[in-house]
Design a protein around this nucleic acid. Structure first.
Lengths: 127, 127
DNA sequence: CCTTGACCTTCTAGTTACTGGAGAGATTAA
DNA sequence: TTAATCTCTCCAGTAACTAGAAGGTCAAGG
C-alpha cells in the first residue's frame, strides 16, 4: 500500500501520516525500491488508533503513551484507565471554563440593544 | 511608566506587552532617551481591553476588530453585538462538541474495570 | 566613585500539531 | 511518448506567545 491508500484507509491526510512517522509516533514504514513508503494493515490500524485518540483530544504525547499500552500485551487496564481519567478531568475543567465564559458573554450580548447608537455595554465592559 | 509597571497595571506579562506592539495590535509606545518603552494610562487601558477580550476567547484578529470599534467614536453597537454574538455561537458549538466527547469518554472509563488484567474496553475501542 | 542587582533592550529559537508549496523523480494510462 | 498523477524531500508558515542569551541602563548602598 502506498501512502495515499494508507492515508485513505486511516482517515488521515497524507502529510499527517508522514508527520507521525517523522516525530516517531509510529514506526517509519519500509520503502519501495523507488523510495516510496509502503504500509500494511498493522501500520494502518495504528494510524487509526492515533486518529481516534486525537479525536478524543489526547495530545501527541498522550497518544504515544496510549499507543505503547495498545502495543503492550502485558499492559494493565488500570494504567489505561488512569490516562483516560486524567483526560476526562481536563475536559471537565474546560467545560467549566467555557460555561462561565458563555454566561458572562451571553449576559453582555442580551444587555446590548444593538441599535445604531455608539453606546454599547459590551465595549463599556471590555474597556 | 516603564514596561513592567504597565505590565502589572494591565495584568499581562512583559513579553506579551512587547509582543502586542510588535504585531501592531496596539500602537508602538514612545521611547525614553535610553530606548525604554514608556506607557501612559491610555495605552494601559487598551492593554486591559485586549486582555479581557482574549479572556473571552477572541483571537488576536478578533481583538483587532473589537479594538477598532473601541477606538471608533462612531461605532454602532449593532456591529459590536454582531461580533460578540458570533463568538457566543462558537462557544456554544464548542460546548456541544466537548459534551459528546465527554459522554463518550466517560462511558469508556466507567466500563473499564481498571484492574491488572490486560483486557481494556478503552483500548479495544480506540484500536 | 564603584558595585550590585533589578530592569530594560534586541534577537533567536522553541512550543503544538500540523499544513502548504516548491522542485524533482516515479509510475501509470492513453 | 506524453500527460497526469503520485511520491519524495526540504523549507516555511500557522497562533500566540514564551524562554533564554548577550548586553545596555538605572538607582541605591558602601
Amino acid at each position: 500500500m502506498n501512502i495515499s491508500a494508507a492515508s485513505k484507509a486511516a482517515g488521515l491526510p497524507v502529510k499527517t501520516v508522514r508527520y507521525y512517522a517523522d516525530i516517531g509516533l509510529v514506526e517509519a514504514p519500509s520503502r519501495s525500491e523507488a523510495g516510496y513508503r509502503t504500509y500494511d494493515d498493522v501500520a494502518v490500524r495504528k494510524l487509526v488508533f492515533v486518529r481516534r485518540s486525537r479525536a478524543f483530544g489526547f495530545s501527541i504525547e498522550g497518544c504515544r503513551e496510549l499507543l505503547n499500552l495498545y502495543q503492550d500485551q502485558d499492559r494493565s487496564s488500570s494504567e489505561v484507565k488512569r490516562i483516560a481519567s486524567m483526560r476526562l478531568e481536563e475536559i471537565e475543567e474546560k467545560q467549566r471554563e467555557l460555561q462561565s465564559l458563555h454566561d458572562e458573554l451571553a449576559h453582555l450580548v442580551t444587555s446590548c440593544r444593538g441599535d445604531h447608537m455608539p453606546d454599547c455595554p459590551i465595549i463599556d465592559y471590555l474597556g
